[in-house]
Simulated scan of single mutants.
Amino acid sequence: MRDVAARASVSVGTVSNVLNAPHKVAPATVARVHAAIAELGFVRNDAARQLRARRSRCVALLVLDVGNPFFTDIARAAEDRAAQENLIVLLGTSDDDLARERAYIDAFDEQRVYGLLVSPIGDDLGRLTTMRARGTPVVLVDRDGTGTPFDSVAVDDVAGAEAAVRHLCERGRRRIAFVAGPTELRQVRDRLVGARRAIAAVPGASLEVIDAPALTVLEGRAVGQQVCDRPSRRRPDAVFCANDLLAIGVLQALVLTGRLRVPEDIALVGYDDIDFARSAVVPLTSVRQPRQVIGATAINLLLGAAEDGPDHRAEHVVLQPELIVRDSSPPI
C-alpha cells in the first residue's frame, strides 16, 4: 500500500479509503489510485485485512439446491444488495444432504465469514447456534425462525398452499393430489398443512399425498407417469406440487403420454412461480414467492444483526404469497 500511495502521490490512508470506502474520496483521486494499483499489480492480502479488522467482507449463502431457479433468484438479489455494502456473497448448496450442509457451515465458520444466510434442511439448529455464539450473525432464509434466536425471512407457506388448493376446489376439483418433497423440509410440511386446511373446508373433497424423494423435474416426471398409468377411477382430477420443478415434471409426463389433457382432465398448480412456470408448454398456475425481496431482506437483517452485536434481538419477516393463475388450471 505504501508503494501504491507513493506512485499515486497520496497518503496510505487515502489508498485504504479507496479500497474500503471509496465514497469518501474524490473520483479523480480514486481513478489515480486505481491506475497505480494496475501499474504495480497490487493485490490486497484479504486474510491479513481480516485479522486486523476481525471481520470478513464475505457473506455466506447456503441454499438447498442452487439448480432451482427459486434459490438462484434469491442469491442474485442478495448479491446485488451486498454489493451496495462492499460485501460479496459466497454460494453453496447443501443438496438436501445434512452431512454436506454441516461441511459447508464448518468451512464458512473457519473462514470467519461476515455472516451466514442459510436455508436449513432439518429442525436441528444446534450448529448454527454455536456459530452465532461465536459472534457470526446467522439469518434463516425461506424459513420462519419464530421461536429461535435467529433472524429470518420467509413466506407464509401454509397460506400459500391453502390458496392453491382452495383455487382448485373452487374450479370443481375434488380428488386432489399433493406431490410432496422430502418431509424433513419445513417448507414441504407447511405446504401440506395448508393443503389439508383447504380440503377440510370443502365437503366431498379429498387429498392424496404422493411422496417424491427430491424437489426436481425428474421426480415430477416419475410421479406424472404414475398418475397416467392409473385407472381413471383412481386418478386425481387435480395435482398441487410442492414446487414448480415438480409441477413442470408432472406436466411433461402428462403431455408426453398424450393420454391426459391439462387442465381438462387434470388441473395442475405449482409453487414458487419461477420463470419457467409462465413459459411452460401449458403455462403453469403457481404460488409466487417474492424471491428478490427475500434475498435483499436477508442481507438487511444480517447487516442489522452485525451492527447490533450481542445485544441484537432477532427479527422475523414473514411475507405473503400470491397465487398466479394461468392455463394449467381451468377458468371458473
Score class of each variant (00 low, 15 high):
268 L>K: 14
180 A>N: 13
312 H>E: 10
32 R>F: 02
68 N>G: 04
135 G>K: 13
78 A>Y: 01
44 R>N: 04
229 D>C: 04
129 T>R: 12
318 V>C: 01
319 L>Q: 02
124 D>N: 15
40 L>C: 00
242 A>V: 14
263 P>V: 03
205 A>C: 11
230 R>C: 12
109 D>E: 11
86 N>A: 13
49 R>H: 10
33 V>T: 00
149 P>R: 00
198 A>V: 12
236 P>D: 09
290 P>S: 03
120 P>Y: 00
184 E>I: 13
147 G>V: 08
123 D>V: 06
143 R>H: 04
285 T>W: 06
145 G>K: 02
104 Y>K: 05
72 T>Y: 02
178 F>L: 14
174 R>I: 06
177 A>E: 06
179 V>T: 12
213 P>V: 12
27 P>N: 03
222 A>H: 11
29 T>G: 04
101 E>M: 06
277 A>W: 08
273 D>P: 00
305 A>K: 08
100 R>D: 05
173 R>G: 13
28 A>V: 04
142 D>Y: 00
29 T>C: 05
81 R>M: 09
235 R>E: 02
219 E>W: 15
236 P>V: 11
306 A>S: 12
231 P>M: 00
20 N>Y: 07
76 R>K: 10
58 C>E: 14
304 G>Q: 11
125 L>G: 05
179 V>R: 09
103 A>T: 07
3 D>Q: 03
54 R>C: 03
312 H>K: 02
67 G>Y: 00
86 N>M: 15
125 L>Q: 05
199 I>S: 03
220 G>A: 12
208 E>M: 06
295 G>R: 07
226 Q>D: 11
208 E>K: 12
197 R>S: 13
164 A>W: 14
327 D>T: 13
231 P>G: 00
221 R>L: 09
22 P>E: 00
3 D>T: 02
326 R>S: 04
191 R>A: 09
120 P>T: 01
273 D>E: 05
330 P>K: 11
122 G>M: 09
206 S>A: 10
60 A>W: 07
233 R>T: 08
2 R>C: 04
33 V>D: 00
169 C>Y: 08
215 L>N: 14
243 N>D: 09
176 I>F: 10
309 G>N: 12
106 D>N: 09
248 I>G: 02
303 L>N: 00
299 I>A: 03
77 A>P: 12
74 I>K: 02
39 E>L: 04
286 S>N: 02
137 P>M: 09
87 L>T: 05
29 T>I: 14
48 A>T: 01
192 L>P: 08
140 L>N: 04
164 A>M: 12
304 G>T: 07
15 V>R: 12
143 R>Q: 03
129 T>S: 10
193 V>Q: 02
310 P>G: 03
110 E>A: 15
195 A>N: 09
55 R>M: 11
197 R>H: 08
246 L>H: 14
70 F>V: 07
255 V>Y: 14
23 H>N: 09
81 R>K: 12
311 D>R: 15
15 V>G: 01
246 L>A: 13
2 R>G: 10
205 A>S: 13
18 V>N: 04
265 D>L: 05
129 T>M: 07
131 M>C: 10
177 A>G: 09
84 Q>I: 06
150 F>K: 00
136 T>S: 07
71 F>S: 02
212 A>N: 04
96 D>T: 04
218 L>I: 09
26 A>L: 09
97 D>N: 15
56 S>W: 11
